[in-house]
Design a protein around this nucleic acid. Structure first.
Lengths: 227, 227
DNA sequence: CTAAAACTTGCCCTGAGTGCAAACATGCAC
DNA sequence: GTGCATGTTTGCACTCAGGGCAAGTTTTAG
């Protein structure tokens, strides 16, 4: 049961990120100060720094939240399941309007601003570290556990997830329509498929993914114009 | 032929990064100011900012140089060669004392300091972008070119290279002895092998790498204690 | 109710980063 | 060489980030 103190802190924290995001939307990145955020959140400048070490950190909290959702999903998967299958399932869960919306917004803002994209980078890296931990627990069963295998796999999974999101933004511009989300879901599935097949050249077998991972293809996009 | 102006600029640039690195070594990260760097490099504080936008950027130039070497190596590979083979070859070229030394030093300093590791992150990301470009040129031959394939592959290659270096630092602490470099070389080869095999569980075939990529195993480490 | 603990705030300081304009160096034409 | 156009360095002044400190305020525990 959360005490009064904890509730207050959580509320303040939320007020700060909300204010920061609102300013980001209205003024554009880099066009507001910590003082602006503090004023909007109804606290003092000094208090802001009790919660976040920088504007960047306040905004990055959003991305962290998104990626933490992914990690939670991953941990929920049965331990016996193949790693890539768990990763695929966890990633597909992210293609949900409520979950992906904040990230989509940040992403489009980040396109024009280097400061933002750097903090997103950091969030993805943090996620890699977390998934290495999760994977270590998962694979510990198999006695001797190769550190390189662990790290290379975790890093690649995150890279592929990131690549899928990048391509999605490229194609759909972060739109949240059902078709767009369906595309995202398929991209995430495909990227895991590529990873699992060792990036066999696509000319050999055009859609290996469909064969190896028969996921919810009911809503899948018809092969979109891969230009 | 470089003009006097260009020579001066290059020299100043070099003086700045040298000074920054020296201060990093002597004072530790975060314990010196831009003014300190400028003084040591014999320029004014203001001029420093004409060259680099921050201390971080000045130091990141080193990592960028390292990764640019890798990219150069990649571009030198014959266009017909399989992508992963080119990547492997390019990465192995990095396991050279002169090339890897600055990165090893930065890495060990970065372990204790978040500011540093973040700029290294940025450099790796920049490298991913570059390798996507290089790969796009390479694969353009194969007419229709899947953006997801491209990005997922490039991202994974970089992730695996990074993982190999991470494990190397973990095992060898950035030592530059021939044995250590040989370990690094083997780790890089192994990580590309894992990627190429779709991360087939190692318990199935303990050392797939050796079979698929018969590289210069003459100097390779005997299977080190993979704890 | 009271005292300790946790949190907020204002004050003040160092240092990052940038616009501006004056001084300075270089390149080029004659 | 002289003179001029162009590029580079520097000092100055300003805004804002970030954080130490101590005094004030709220919450919790007894």
């Amino acid at each position: 049961m959360p005490s009064r103190r904890e509730l207050n802190k959580a509320a303040t924290r939320q007020a700060i990120t909300d204010a920061a995001l609102a300013l980001l939307r209205s003024n554009g990145p880099g066009n507001f100060t910590v003082e602006d955020i503090a004023d909007a959140a109804g606290i003092s400048r000094r208090t802001f720094f009790n919660y976040f070490s920088s504007t960047e950190a306040a905004i990055a909290a959003v991305t962290f939240g998104f990626l933490d959702t992914a990690l939670q999903q991953f941990r929920l998967r049965p331990a016996g399941e193949p790693f890539l299958e768990s990763a695929r399932a966890a990633l597909v869960e992210l293609a949900d309007p409520m979950t992906v919306a904040p990230l989509a917004e940040l992403y489009s803002l980040g396109q024009t601003n280097p400061q933002l994209s750097r903090s997103e980078l950091e969030a993805w890296d943090h996620c890699t570290v977390e998934i290495i931990t999760a994977a270590r627990e998962r694979l510990r069963e198999g006695v001797e556990l190769d550190e390189l295998y662990l790290r290379a796999l975790a890093g690649s999974v995150i890279s592929c997830g990131k690549a899928a999101m990048d391509v999605w933004f490229l194609r759909c511009g972060g739109s949240l329509t059902p078709e767009s989300l369906s595309t995202l879901r398929q991209l995430l599935i495909d990227s895991m498929g590529l990873l699992g097949s060792g990036f066999a050249r696509p000319d050999a077998a055009p859609s290996t993914t469909q064969a190896t991972i028969p996921a919810d293809n009911s809503t899948a996009t018809p092969p979109p114009d891969r230009h």
